[in-house]
Structures are given as C-alpha cells and as structure tokens.
Design a protein around this nucleic acid. Sequence first.
DNA 1: AACATTACTTGTATTTTGCAAGTAATATTA
DNA 2: TAATATTACTTGCAAAATACAAGTAATGTT
Lengths: 108, 108
Amino acid sequence: MFDNKSTYGDFLRSDENIATNILADRLLMLECAGMIVKERHPENGTKFLYKPTQKAIDLLPALLELIVWSDKHERISVRAREFARQIRKDRESIIRQMSAYLKSISEK
Amino acid sequence: MFDNKSTYGDFLRSDENIATNILADRLLMLECAGMIVKERHPENGTKFLYKPTQKAIDLLPALLELIVWSDKHERISVRAREFARQIRKDRESIIRQMSAYLKSISEK
DNA sequence: AACATTACTTGTATTTTGCAAGTAATATTA
DNA sequence: TAATATTACTTGCAAAATACAAGTAATGTT
C-alpha cells in the first residue's frame, strides 16, 4: 500500500524476503479475508494483480499511527522519518489523499 | 491496556486462552523490547505487576484506530462498538484521557 | 505444619515456517 | 516454430514456534 507493489514478484522481491510458499499462502488468506482481490494483469498474461479492497484501505489510519510510533521509538529510514513528520503535521489530509489514490488504482 | 489487567494470572485467565509457556515467553519478550516493566506486587508477595512503559502507551492511537476499523469491518461486542463510537466522536480527548490514566497507574 | 495461590518450567505432540527444488502457463528470442 | 525466459506458483523436508499436560518453587493462608 505504501510502495505501489501489486504482483507476486513485487512482493517476493521486497525487503521482507518472504519465502515463495508463505507468500502464496498469505495472498490466499488475504483474499479469503476480503483484504485483496486477484485479477489478471492487463498487459502481461503471466502476471496477476493483487489490489487492496476498501477493507484494507481502511487500515490506513492505524498504519499511519504505527509509522508515527516507529519514528518515536525505533530506528527507521530517512524516508520513513520524513513521512512521519508529514503525518504529524496534517494527518487528515494525508489519509484523504492516500485513500483516494488507493481507491483509484484499485478501480482500474 | 484496555482491561486493567496487570498480572500473569490476569493475562492467563483472559479471553485469549494463551498457554502458560507462551505467556511467560511473551512477557519476557515485551520486557526485553521495553514495552513492559516487571515489579513485585505491593500487597501480595506471590504476584508480580506488569506495567506498560511510555513506549507501549504510545501505541494507543494505533490501537484505537484498529478498534474503529473492527467496528466497520468485523463483528465485535456491544461494548467495543460503543467504545468505537466514542473514539470517532472525540479521538484526541480519548487519547489524552487514556494516556494520562495509563501513565498514572504505571507510576504507582 | 499442611494446604492453597501464583508464577512459572519442562517434556512432548502438533502446527507453522523456511529453504531448495520443481512445474505449468504465457511471453520472448533465435 | 522451436528453444529459452518470466512469472506464479507447488511440493518435500528440516527447523522453529506453538499448544497441551504435568510438575516445581516461592509465598500466603488456615
């Protein structure tokens, strides 16, 4: 939701270094829980797109608060620190902007 | 943090039904992570008190957002629903009140 | 002195995870 | 068009985490 990652390969190659079987399992769980929907990629037949549902997008306020918390209590990246600063400055506006953006890409 | 539970026995008897060894393990992890401190109970020598640190109390905003999310997307208790309503109504005031309360009991 | 609470620890079976390897479907290249 | 490459998985197995049952040590109560 924060890095515009949307395919199995995107998730696999991200920093978390998750195992292939665990990733497949998690994607299925998230789909069953109504947090993501799986669709064919419009430009590449080998790929699938995993899009967040409104239920997932609605977690944004909680996630933003966790970023603010991390900024206070953990060592995080410069990029995350800057983002935390913005959230503290104008939380409501960031929630509105990001929700609208995520909704727009999930409707494509 | 929401139910005033503060001893090993309190946690053990709560709804989650955690195993004794897992609970002991979790309490140690939380203590090592600086989220709780362990102290002797002032009135009962067999008991220990586990108190949240400021680091834990600072998670309150994120936790409250999760309660609001749950109210929208999951089936929760009447009590939790009423709490969610209050949070939506006056979030800042609830954070201030609860933080102050948790800080006061953690300083006893 | 015996029994009860409380907060654990220990042993073992079950479940989950992590790693390496393999497979099926589509896309690209020679 | 045949061979190779991508992508999204699945499968098998070892290692780690969890759940359950039972036991122990320190303090408190009768």
